[in-house]
Design a protein around this nucleic acid. Structure first.
Lengths: 255, 255
DNA sequence: GACCGTAGTTGAACACGTTCAAGAAGGTGG
DNA sequence: CCACCTTCTTGAACGTGTTCAACTACGGTC
């Protein structure tokens, strides 16, 4: 209700200190007074919410740090007290979508038992969740692509989110009745996650209306993977399978 | 104007087309419409050479447009007369390495007939060529990853370079004695190029000493692909192959 | 030779992400 | 009440990529 943040582009300047006396205004979300540390956390959230809203409204590149600060009613330097850089603000978006995917995927996994159906559902759910942010995601992807960026899906900083994502695919495999080579079973979740990264990559580059091509890619690739997984138990393919698994091991080994 | 070109001296300064008027040197294919203005081309080359040198010496991010201009002995605005942005300067690097890869690949293709050996050689040659620029390439890769960037390997602006790269892999296939399904034969070059893009992606993220993991990836993946290609003629796999080819077709179709 | 149009060139100016020294707020211990 | 420390906040300032109106040089035309 209070929603001072929506005050646009004009006044925001006259607001030197937010809630100097507390007066209970700060208790909006959580019920009770946190430890004294709550003061900064509020500002942090305010800045993050404001930034994500502006990213959504205007796009990432078009949103300046000055605009975020002004809109949030703080000094620009304050944003940098809580976030190391503009890119770091994206992490919030990142986490949020990851969680939404997890949730949407769970609904699918609760309803489906067949491996192919589970995989297909989870992949489509991932696209569903990200669909509204396609144009924004493209620019955001640019910064995530930098290997040294903490936003990279392969970075140490992302390892928690990455593990969570892989867990979804582990669930896809484990919860299905698919019979497969035990060693493959162990590696498959990570491989599927890698495939998902590939789908996301394709999606980012997909300019077709509503990203239909990505949908078709999913629909076409899933039966293929399903078939391949089934074929993996075939005698002629055993050596090839071993070869693939050995390669994965070799490549992963040291650093 | 005194003692200009503090460091840009050496080679790049005085090069071709020094005679602007003589003998219609600038035989740019188009012809009459264009007045013979080779004057600017020299400046363009000077700026490009200077920029690439500084990128190599200091890195991309650390090289400022002001430094490029100063080192080249021109005003900063002049660089923008010839190049739309700092990113556009990278295109030169891009083209040069592409050509070097083509050259190194040719040596391999002239010597080897076996499919696996050809593929392996071409991939290693690609890494060889790019090796000296690994740290620089990582940051440069960031800008290439942006879908809307003209530097993206999938962009229209890169289509010439892309076709040239695919041609290398076409040569890999055609020049080998490998027997394979005719339809696969048609698609394989582009698929191999896509795989090559994957290897590059892996390479960019590879922090192992001298990117050994990438080398191992190549050495491990090539026999695998070789085997897969050979297996593609197996009866049990024919339907799967059809499925793959159909998927590629579907995904590629409209936009 | 005078004139004009355009390719080429300039550097100040702009908006941006980011940094930093300075200070305010608010608690803690005396 | 007073120092004192930590946490939080500020806004000017820096260096960056990029733009732009003005200017120069030069070939073509009369």
């Amino acid at each position: 209700m209070t929603d001072v943040t929506t005050a646009a582009d004009d006044d925001a300047a006259d607001q030197p200190t937010a809630a100097p006396d507390a007066a209970g205004a700060d208790a909006t979300a959580s019920g009770e007074e946190k430890p004294r540390r709550a003061r900064g956390e509020q500002t942090r959230q305010l800045i993050l919410e404001t930034a994500l809203r502006l990213f959504r409204e205007r796009g990432y590149a078009e949103t300046t740090m000055r605009a975020v600060a002004k809109e949030a009613g703080v000094a620009v330097g304050n944003a940098y007290y809580y976030f190391d850089s503009k890119e770091h603000l994206i992490q919030g978006f990142y986490d949020r979508n990851q969680q939404a995917h997890r949730l949407a995927a769970q609904a699918v996994l609760d309803a489906e038992k067949d491996f192919a159906a589970r995989l297909r559902g989870v992949l489509h759910a991932g696209i569903d969740v990200n669909q509204p942010y396609h144009s924004f995601a493209a620019t955001f992807f640019k910064t995530a692509a930098e290997p040294s960026s903490p936003l990279s899906p392969f970075s140490r900083e992302s390892s928690a989110a990455r593990e969570a994502a892989i867990a979804i695919f582990r669930d896809v495999v484990e919860g299905s009745g698919a019979k497969l080579d035990p060693e493959l079973r162990r590696e498959l979740p990570e491989l599927l996650w890698l495939g998902w990264m590939g789908v996301v990559l394709f999606w980012v580059y997909d300019h077709s209306p509503e990203q239909r091509r990505t949908r078709r890619l999913i629909d076409g690739a899933v039966p293929l993977i399903d078939r391949l997984v089934a074929l993996s138990r075939l005698r002629v393919l055993r050596p090839a399978l071993r070869q693939v698994l050995a390669l994965i091991d070799t490549v992963r080994s040291d650093d």
